[in-house]
């Protein structure tokens, strides 16, 4: 790090030749550029480490295709209107249709392979709220009449399964903003457990 910060000699010479005032100014901008580069690098590194885009789901589920077939979110994410969690569908749910081959997706036969082995599909849950947050899907969908896309984005146009958290952008401020907008209490205990 220290060596990295050494001035290139040619530059220093130039700096010496030119007037001090000007030289000072140039040097400042040089530092500024250096700072931007370093800071940018750090930010990039942090965001790269921070984002977990490396998840691979066991089956390349095509949301768009299913919606086009006339299905609704609730048909698979069964508990959305009944419980706190939306729930990821289990194998039984998939087999309702996919016990016989459907379509031409190369991942589709995998469902029956899992069924044969008597295993569940090891879906990886990517949307997670911290443990001290209480979020009821039922309340937001049934009572507040929110649309899934408000938090989960446009799943209807998505041809692959989710690999990274779609709700990562939700901060407490966002929750509170919306609550304020719809005149819902922002009491801490409303959402914290």
């Amino acid at each position: 790090m220290v060596y990295f910060l050494y001035l290139p000699s040619s530059y220093e010479n130039q700096f010496n030749r030119s007037g001090r005032y000007k030289g000072n100014r140039e040097m400042r901008s040089w530092y500024f550029i250096l700072f931007v580069i370093v800071a940018g690098g750090v930010i990039c590194a942090v965001s790269l480490i921070g984002s977990k885009d490396s998840t691979t789901q066991p089956i390349q589920f095509n949301h768009k295709r299913h919606i086009e077939e006339g299905m609704n979110c609730v048909d698979c994410h069964k508990q959305v209107e009944k419980g706190i969690h939306a729930t990821i569908p289990n194998l039984k749910q998939c087999l309702l249709c996919h016990s016989d081959p459907q379509g031409s997706n190369k991942d589709e036969p995998k469902i029956r392979e899992y069924a044969q082995r008597g295993e569940e599909i090891p879906w990886i849950q990517v949307n997670r709220l911290p443990g001290h947050v209480y979020f009821s899907h039922r309340v937001h969908i049934v009572m507040a009449k929110m649309d899934c896309s408000e938090c989960h984005g446009d799943m209807k146009g998505r041809t692959n399964p989710v690999t990274s958290s779609q709700i990562g952008h939700l901060s407490m401020d966002k929750c509170m903003e919306c609550h304020k907008q719809y005149n819902v209490s922002n009491d801490c205990l409303r959402c914290h457990k």
């Binding site: 419980g83 969690h85 990821i88 289990n90 569940e120």
Partner: peptide, 18 residues
């Protein structure tokens, strides 16, 4: 730290979350 990962449940499959 607010939700502790629990060990897997033996037996019953098809238990959905919650």
């Amino acid at each position: 730290p607010y939700s502790i990962k629990k060990p897997p449940v033996s037996g019953d499959k098809g238990l959905y979350k919650g």
